[in-house]
């Protein structure tokens, strides 16, 4: 039973993490056609925010609750800054934005190394996340359950925002037809900025969750970002449900592959799986007709 429950539950937690990371990517990619390769470094920024928060709010039980909104704002502002200074100048050049953000990512990584030192910094787990729940032989850590709760809350909040708020309606309008949205008075540039803020902010929250797994280090983002991109590719654009299904599928599949073979081979197998899947559905699981993407 363990060889089934362990990968399933651990994989669900990994999937939840990928979901938080991929939501922001899918949002900005779907709306603006922008692939932000520095998204991983926003995760890193979130993790460092968690570390810094612990220096101020020394009680680990409380600091994580402060760190979550703080990381959202820090990463969100970084995203906004990126949008205003770089991406806004490169509309309709999606491949070029991709490369520019590669440069931004390299830059941020080196910056983190110079500011915080190359040695990673510890982030203490709050006492209410210590421990585990035995489920069919798997000692399911509370921390993993917390990650799943975090992902579900983030997803619900985002879905509610998109569905019920007027801002959400503006986003959906922009995704479906930018020109038409502009004609009816939606200020699409402002919408873009806020989308970028929210999408990057989500990465910050993901970073806090990652910091509970591995502390902080400058290369933290690179370990997750490729999987997050594969999730976006497999999930398709413009609809959250595609990203959700793809995130959990990739997370759980990787865990099972790792259980059957090794963690290295699991990376290889997951990639192969996504390529094969794209043979069946080249546009991903779900896609919304939008203006042509690159």
């Amino acid at each position: 039973m363990d060889s089934f429950t362990t990968p399933l539950l651990a994989g669900t937690a990994t999937g939840a993490l990928l979901l938080i990371a991929a939501l922001g990517l899918a949002l900005t990619f779907g709306q603006m056609g922008v692939i932000n390769m520095a998204h991983g470094e926003f995760l890193m920024a979130g993790a460092y925010t968690a570390f810094l928060t612990q220096q101020v709010v020394t009680n680990a039980d409380v600091s994580i609750l402060v760190a979550l909104p703080a990381a959202f704002v820090v990463a969100g502002l970084l995203g906004l800054l990126l949008e205003v200074t770089v991406i806004a100048w490169m509309y309709r050049r999606p491949l070029d934005t991709l490369l520019v953000t590669v440069g931004v990512g390299l830059f941020l990584q080196q910056l983190a190394k110079d500011v915080f030192g190359a040695q990673g910094d510890p982030v203490r787990t709050p006492s209410w996340l210590e421990g585990n729940l035995p489920v069919f032989g798997y000692h399911w850590p509370y921390r993993q359950m917390f990650t799943i709760v975090l992902a579900v809350v983030a997803l619900a909040a985002l879905a509610a925002l998109l569905k019920y708020s007027s801002f959400g309606r503006q986003i959906r309008a922009t995704v479906q037809n930018r020109d038409l949205a502009e004609t009816v008075g939606v200020r699409t540039r402002a919408v873009d900025r806020i989308t970028f803020f929210v999408g990057s902010g989500l990465a910050g929250i993901g970073g806090v969750a990652v910091s509970l797994i591995s502390g902080t280090n400058p290369r933290l983002g690179t370990a997750y970002i490729i999987s997050a991109f594969l999730v976006v590719v497999a999930g398709g654009l413009g609809q959250l449900k595609g990203t959700v299904i793809a995130a959990f599928a990739v997370g759980i599949a990787t865990s099972f592959f790792a259980d059957w073979t090794s963690a290295s081979m699991a990376q290889v197998a997951t990639f192969a799986l996504v390529v094969v899947f794209l043979q069946l559905r080249p546009q991903g699981l779900f896609t919304v007709r939008s203006r042509g993407l690159a």
Binding site: F29, L98, V233, F271, V275, L278, P282
Partner: peptide, 14 residues
């Protein structure tokens, strides 16, 4: 399968 643009770039990087 007409996968192109950013999808293609991401797949090659992966």
């Amino acid at each position: 399968r007409r996968v192109k643009g950013a999808y293609f770039a991401i797949l090659t990087q992966a």
